[in-house]
Design a binder for these strands. Structure first.
Lengths: 354, 354
DNA sequence: TTGAAAGCGCTAACAA
DNA sequence: TTGTTAGCGCTTTCAA
């Protein structure tokens, strides 16, 4: 079927081990001419080493796993794209899995990845507990948790990479407060996830700075307990935002500014406001979170908090690589929190006094 | 490190071959009690067969490849999501690769996938020629080309799955013609790809039906020869649309309706029109193609042509499965063209007479 | 109904 | 500097 190392060896007139040595960069242990003969034979035959055989023998794999809620969400798609780019440069590939935020699927996927010899995985789960995944980490899986910070029960080797969600939400909230808004709303799915809770804390912190309390802010939180507010592919966020806008704008004291848990949700809020005849940017300010591609394209363009995805992907890959190449999780886990950035666009504006 | 078939055999007091027989559904060849003992042992030890070993032995793999231009584009992300869902149901997984529409990367990826034992791949390339990939198909790779129709030089076993792009573009164009528009534009990246050309033909066909000719339509085509109009991750479409809107609206006889090559491009056109102070839906009608998630969320919501992605993903998987399980490409290639559907929303409206 | 044995393609001691 | 050899974990004849 395919050409093997033996055929290459025969073609070059050497033994398979010599070919293997060339393949694995140990060509210092042979005459330059031998090396050349082997390389010629490889090229002539179009030989590529058989991955599974290699992996069976070495236990190593050049594939990393990435588990995201759903690539149908452009935020995760973009992250996947960046992680793949980082991995590719170092000769790794990325196997992508959609968990739909279902802990059982997360666990199943990780176990399959492990069984397939994959020893490094980025898990984009913001569940507070990772115990459903602990056994594999104990067996030696290098795990990077993305979009989450360290929690008390975490395995010691776990590396968490995330934007500083509290700071981000605080930046967003301060921005609308500075524009004079004093009646705010915070729209989110279920607050069970680590990052959403952090964002909520940032929202509260900004309110406090301005001497505002619970009376001045509405927290609109949708979502079912099972899937943390999402049914299919993270794509309920727009629906969630739309529903929130409907409710909030019908309130006795409607908010003049809304801080959304993410951009998809913010776009939903914008659509909901449009349905209600409310103009975003003037009648109502909306701030998102993430800065997905479409934030800049929306009408009006969305003010949001940018996550430095390329840097985050690079960091995730770097950790993974070290972990898998050492065989087993790095001993020192912890959290890496990158700084988010406020991007002001047209969806926010000064409060209107009646 | 991990538990092996030998340990399971020891635990159950049988030989490895018996365990293997259980694993592979040949439990009719043993006493029910034996089978039970084995299953107990498997459960007790938490055994999972080693993928690479299995694959090395059988040559089969439970992984399929998916090569898309970029998952950062929500259209491809959504397709990936659907393909994964179809595959998962049948016990397959999907390895995702971003080609950036670069033929060299497409070929490299396919070769790596082949070397990794993957025998079925969905290639989302709309290049007219697939010769860079032909050798692998000849070696037995089952290939489904997505978003492309059969071409003269194609390998006989190649299956193409696509929406009927000509019909789709015709539906889109007719829609604005019916609204009274007589000055149209067609905005696209380079017309080198099969599907874009088909869409363009549909546009022309609709014009002809209405007795219009080249004078009444502007074709705005951006993009470089190398990457077919895209630099990074298919994400230049919005930029392309924006630039097109700028140009077209500055024309002596600006179009009153624009047919865009896809939704991302249409959203860019909308943004560009907004920049120029032109209101989409009233002053200018814009039609997209694809019906990505965000089409419905845009302001105004985008009139577009919907691609039946779930059905397309199911079809792609079904072909792949048959192909790989037979070992080697299916003998009868051809094209499967699914019917697209016009979805009318707010971005199109009747032409305004001055 | 069950088990023994060979070998998939590769790597890495170890020997020559 | 190069080759011989054993074996990674599994499946699959073939024999018992």
């Amino acid at each position: 079927m395919s050409v093997t190392i033996h055929q290459v060896a025969a073609e070059a007139g050497v033994s398979p081990s010599t070919v293997s040595n060339v393949l694995n960069g140990r060509s210092d242990r042979m005459l330059p001419q031998t090396r050349e003969r082997v390389e010629d034979a490889i090229a002539r035959l179009g030989y590529r080493p058989n991955g599974p055989a290699r992996q069976l023998r070495t236990g190593r794999s050049q594939v990393l796993g990435l588990v995201v809620p759903s690539v149908a969400n452009p935020f995760w798609g973009t992250f996947a794209r960046h992680l793949e780019a980082a991995a590719l440069q170092a000769g790794y590939r990325v196997l992508l899995c959609n968990s739909e935020r279902d802990p059982a699927r997360e666990r199943d996927y990780l176990e399959e990845l492990w069984a397939d010899g994959i020893r490094g995985v980025v898990l984009c789960s913001s569940l507070p507990s990772l115990e459903h995944v602990l056994p594999l980490v104990e067996r030696g899986l290098t795990l990077v948790a993305f979009d989450r910070t360290a929690q008390a029960g975490d395995p010691p080797s776990l590396v968490n990479i995330s934007v500083d969600n509290a700071v981000g939400a605080e930046l967003a909230t301060r921005h609308v407060l500075q524009l004079g808004h004093r009646r705010l709303a915070f729209v989110t799915g279920s607050l069970r996830s680590v990052n959403r809770r952090a964002r909520y804390r940032g929202f509260e912190a900004a309110l406090e700075e301005y001497g505002l309390g619970a009376d001045d802010a509405i927290v609109w939180s949708g979502g079912t307990p099972d899937h943390y507010g999402d049914r299919f592919g993270d794509l309920d966020f727009p629906e969630l935002g739309r529903a929130a806008a409907r409710d909030l704008l019908a309130d006795d004291r409607p908010p003049t500014a809304i801080v959304a848990i993410n951009d998809m949700c913010a776009l939903g809020i914008t659509a909901g406001a449009r349905d209600a005849g409310v103009q975003v940017g003037t009648d109502l300010s909306v701030v998102g979170f993430d800065d997905i591609v479409l934030a800049d394209l929306a009408t009006p363009p969305l003010t949001t908090i940018r996550q430095p995805l390329p840097a985050m992907a690079d960091a995730a890959f770097a950790h993974l690589r070290v972990g898998v190449e050492q065989g087993g999780g790095s001993p020192n886990g912890g959290s890496l929190l990158l700084r988010p950035e406020l991007v002001v666009r047209g969806s926010t504006g000064p409060v209107r006094r009646p």
